[in-house]
Amino acid sequence: MTKPIPPAPFGRRAMLVAAVAMLPAPSIAQGAGQTIRIAVVRATVLAPALLVQQFLPAGWRTDLTPFVAPGDMSNALLTDSVDLAYIGLTIGIVARSREQPISIVANGAGKGTAIIVRADSDIRSIADLRGKRVGNIPLAIHEILLREELRKANMRIQDINLIRLGPADMPGALQRGEIDAFAGNEPNATLAVMGGYGRVLMFPYDNPVGTINVGVLSSDRVTSQRQELMRAWAEAHAKATDRLAADPEGWADLVAREWGYDRTATRRSIDNIELGWRIDARFESQLGAYIDRLQELGVITRKPDMSKLLVKSFVEGVRV
């Protein structure tokens, strides 16, 4: 069941989170059906959240709440308003670096980034971005990957002219000539290419940060006190993820139907998304590199304790 949250000023939203936190937590009786409260950002990379319900045991259900602001999602986890959050990994890293009890409990998806230039430009390499206006989401994974590619080309971020833009604003700014390129997400990268005014310069994954993108977060309270819930969810999350990964057409249909996204653009953008649920050696290596970059940029002042940041036991127990 989807329960949208209307836009609200900060004070009202904080009051809403606090009010929800006062509600009784779901029953944790062994063998009893439960409601799993899931926060999600409406994004193609996070579509498995929509399918978890289908793979839960009888009597279980999901309660999906869409969020926009990562900070609100972090607060919802910390106040026990939700059990799980499908979101980028940064809020978990930042929280745990501050010793707040939020952990990464599963992978979600990788890739989903592209560096797009104007189709009629003479930009053919990262080096050609020197002095150019580049649309950017500050400190998002897309900027981190852009920085990685600049590093490989012996360039600094100061060698380009970063233009702060929201993800959905990037294709239009490129089309109007207000920027020369952007490091953006899907499906906005695909929309620029489909519109004929954008061209893929590169998919920036050949670096230590690599393909890492989004995951699933939870709180220490949930992982320690609601283990039956976590086991049921982990099994369902894995099956939902594998189902969509094996059926990109169905994946596109689901996102278009549930979230109203353009079906054609969604389907094309899926070619640049890599669903996954396992916390494996590759994921841990890329996560470590990502954490290093966040520390270098001052987003975090110290690295989180990885033994607390990563709670791998639930996905490691999955048998699919």
Rank of each mutant, 00 (worst) to 15 (best):
S74F: 00
S74N: 12
N75S: 14
T79K: 04
S81A: 15
V82M: 12
V82L: 08
V82F: 08
D83F: 02
L84N: 06
L84E: 04
L84G: 10
A85K: 06
A85R: 06
A85I: 04
Y86W: 15
I87C: 12
G88P: 11
L89I: 14
L89M: 11
T90F: 00
I91C: 07
G92T: 03
G92F: 01
G92R: 01
V94E: 13
A95T: 03
A95G: 04
A95M: 04
A95L: 05
R98S: 12
E99G: 10
Q100H: 07
P101E: 09
P101C: 12
I102T: 08
I104N: 07
I104Y: 03
V105T: 11
A106W: 06
A106Q: 10
N107H: 15
A109H: 06
G110W: 10
G110C: 12
G110D: 10
T113M: 04
A114W: 01
V117S: 02
V117N: 05
V117H: 03
R118N: 10
R118Q: 11
A119H: 12
D120A: 13
D120S: 12
D120R: 02
D120N: 13
S121T: 09
D122M: 07
I123Y: 08
I123S: 03
I123W: 09
I123E: 03
R124H: 14
R124P: 07
R124V: 14
R124W: 01
R124N: 15
S125E: 13
S125K: 06
A127E: 12
